[in-house]
Design a protein around this nucleic acid. Sequence first.
DNA 1: TATTGTTATACTCTATAACTATA
DNA 2: TATAGTTATAGAGTATAACAATA
Lengths: 162, 162
Amino acid sequence: MSRSASVLDDQPRPGAPDGDAPSLGALSDVLGYHVAQAAVTTVELFERHIGERYGLRKVEFSILMLLQANHAITPKKLGQMLALTPPNLTLLLDRLQERGLLRRERSQVDRRSHNIVLTEAGVELAAETAAAAVPMERELQGRLSAAERALLIELLRKVAGR
Amino acid sequence: MSRSASVLDDQPRPGAPDGDAPSLGALSDVLGYHVAQAAVTTVELFERHIGERYGLRKVEFSILMLLQANHAITPKKLGQMLALTPPNLTLLLDRLQERGLLRRERSQVDRRSHNIVLTEAGVELAAETAAAAVPMERELQGRLSAAERALLIELLRKVAGR
DNA sequence: TATTGTTATACTCTATAACTATA
DNA sequence: TATAGTTATAGAGTATAACAATA
């Protein structure tokens, strides 16, 4: 754990008004901190490429992508995959439904559960935003090589563990 | 982008009530999604090892660690390092100050700014929680080797870019 | 005029509890 | 008696605007 003694005990040097880069201390060994800091970048990227342009929140985009890939899926499963509690999911689905992007169809097999399916507009928006994700990811090339990016995703999946 | 056709069009097979594992679709190539999913794990880890035990939120723990490593630091810098807006930081510092963990000392150099310093109780809690972070990180060994973990942190730092 | 930090405020995000309807 | 989903509600997290004190 490297630390830079007490360089700035209320005495910032004239030439460096903001002092040295402060040390992370014990935080440098805390994985969660680095995950959170990386999220600052990815969230900003998402907002700029997709969120603001299509009026979608991160989770809404994820839901669209999962519905695109799985056609019909229950709220239960969506909730499990995205770590959402049932009440939150209900609200999210309400919002997307009001926008005409999806439908809830009562399952004929188990009438308690629903199958969520994209409407035509939903299919279209899913395709558009999936396409918008490509340049978004490409923007990371300045920070990570393709190999590093693939490796990073693999390691993150191990941490997520599912 | 692998997708598993329409295995579950409202017809879950009897033997597998929850159907096959749904595909991630386009999401599997979105770094931000994987970062967010990994965060679910690290947040849960934090809550269990530190948050609940010491009544600290993630950011509060981070502030403690930064103060521990840097002795005196201004809210401005803390805000930059943790991506917090000034009003949020004010509230966080209020809370920690009310708990008797830190003091705001007006800088003699620039009387607009403050130096935040840990009280004795703050130093103690910082040490305790830093120690509690060790077994927390160790718990990740089931998912990542030491080398993988180091590599992951390095890659996350590149994404965070600072 | 610009900067540090604060106050006031509101909006988003997420969680818990209680409920309905099906099984 | 258990499960899928909803409703109601509250708390945590985060943002913007307006302000005070100092530079």
